[in-house]
C-alpha cells in the first residue's frame, strides 16, 4: 500500500493521520513533532462496513458519527452504538475515526474498551501483508498497542451478537462529552437464564482498557440475581488497580466501578430472555 511505502521512505519520524482529532492537539501542544504526516483519510480499503458471515468488518476510517448511526453496527456490534453518543462531542464525532481511536488506545476512551468487550479482532497491515490480532492481545500499555511502527490498522472485525447475547454500556462522566471517571461495557452470552460467557471491560481505570476477569468468573454459570451481582461487585474491586490521582483516588474509582457494574448487571438481568 502507498501509505506503508510512504512511512518506509520517511523513516521512523512519521505519523499516520486519519481524523486527526487526537493527533492534531498533540501537535498543537508541540508534544509530538513528526517530520512527516501521512494522510490516510482517502484510502478506500480503510472504509466501509460489511457483514461477512459471523463477522462484521468495520473499516478503520469509519467516523464516530457513522458508528453512532449505522444500522449494521447497531444490529451486530451494538456496544459501539451505545458508547458512541458518549464519545467526545458532535463535531469531533464528525471527523474522528474508529480505527484512530482504537490505535490511539487512550485508556479513558470508550471505543478501545468496547473493542475489547466485543471480543473484536484488529486487522493490521504491513509491507508483508496483513495480520489479525485479538483485542485481548492488542492493548499493551498506556497508548501502546500491538501495532508496530509503520504498520497500519485497516479494519476492526467484530463477532456478531446473536439472540443469546445481552449487553449494556454505562459511564460516569460529570458532564456529557467529558472523559468518564469510570466506564464499562458488558457483553454476556446467556443460555437458559444463566451466564455462559461474559466479557466485562472497564475504561478510565488503568493504563489500558481492563477486563474484569474476577468479576466475570464470579458470574459464570449463574443467573444474574442480587447475590450474583453482589459477588461480582465484591470481585471487581480486585480486578482493578486504578492509578493514583489527586482528584479521583483509586478507592473512589473502585467504588464507582462497583456501582457501575451493579447497575449494568441489573440492566442485563432486566433484558428480556
Amino acid at each position: 500500500m502507498e501509505a506503508l511505502d510512504a512511512y518506509e521512505q520517511a523513516g521512523s519520524d512519521a505519523s499516520y493521520i486519519a481524523g486527526g482529532q487526537s493527533l492534531v492537539p498533540a501537535l498543537a501542544l508541540r508534544l509530538q513533532a513528526p517530520d512527516v504526516l501521512i494522510d490516510i483519510a482517502h484510502i478506500p480499503d480503510l472504509r466501509g462496513i460489511e457483514l461477512k458471515g459471523n463477522w462484521l468488518r468495520i473499516g478503520a476510517l469509519t467516523r464516530h458519527a457513522e458508528v453512532l448511526a449505522h444500522p449494521l453496527i447497531r444490529q451486530h456490534a451494538p456496544l459501539y452504538s451505545d458508547a458512541a453518543p458518549h464519545v467526545a462531542h458532535p463535531a469531533i464525532r464528525n471527523k474522528g475515526t474508529l480505527g484512530g481511536s482504537i490505535a490511539h488506545a487512550d485508556p479513558a476512551s470508550e471505543f478501545p474498551a468496547m473493542t475489547l468487550a466485543l471480543g473484536a479482532e484488529l486487522e493490521i497491515a504491513n509491507r508483508n501483508g496483513t495480520r489479525r490480532v485479538a483485542a485481548d492481545a492488542f492493548f499493551v500499555d498506556l497508548f501502546q498497542t500491538a501495532i508496530e511502527p509503520g504498520e497500519l490498522l485497516v479494519a476492526i472485525h467484530v463477532p456478531v451478537v446473536n439472540a443469546n447475547h445481552r449487553w449494556a454500556f454505562h459511564e460516569l462522566a460529570r458532564r456529557r462529552g467529558d472523559y468518564a471517571l469510570v466506564g464499562c461495557g458488558i457483553l454476556a452470552d446467556v443460555i437458559d437464564g444463566a451466564i455462559a460467557q461474559i466479557r466485562i471491560v472497564f475504561f478510565s481505570v488503568g493504563n489500558t482498557p481492563v477486563r474484569a476477569a474476577k468479576a466475570e468468573h464470579a458470574l459464570i454459570g449463574r443467573v444474574i440475581d442480587a447475590d450474583a451481582i453482589a459477588a461480582a461487585q465484591a470481585a471487581v474491586i480486585h480486578d482493578l488497580d486504578p492509578p493514583e490521582d489527586e482528584n479521583v483516588p483509586p478507592a473512589m474509582r473502585r467504588q464507582l466501578a462497583r456501582v457501575v457494574l451493579g447497575r449494568l448487571l441489573g440492566d442485563i438481568a432486566r433484558q428480556a430472555p
Binding site: G20, V24, A91, K95
Partner: peptide, 16 residues
C-alpha cells in the same frame, strides 16, 4: 462546515 459536516477547523490541516 466541511463537506456538509461541522468540524473543528483547528483539528484539520488546510492541506487535508
Amino acid at each position: 462546515v466541511l463537506d456538509g459536516q461541522v468540524v473543528h477547523a483547528c483539528l484539520s490541516f488546510a492541506v487535508q
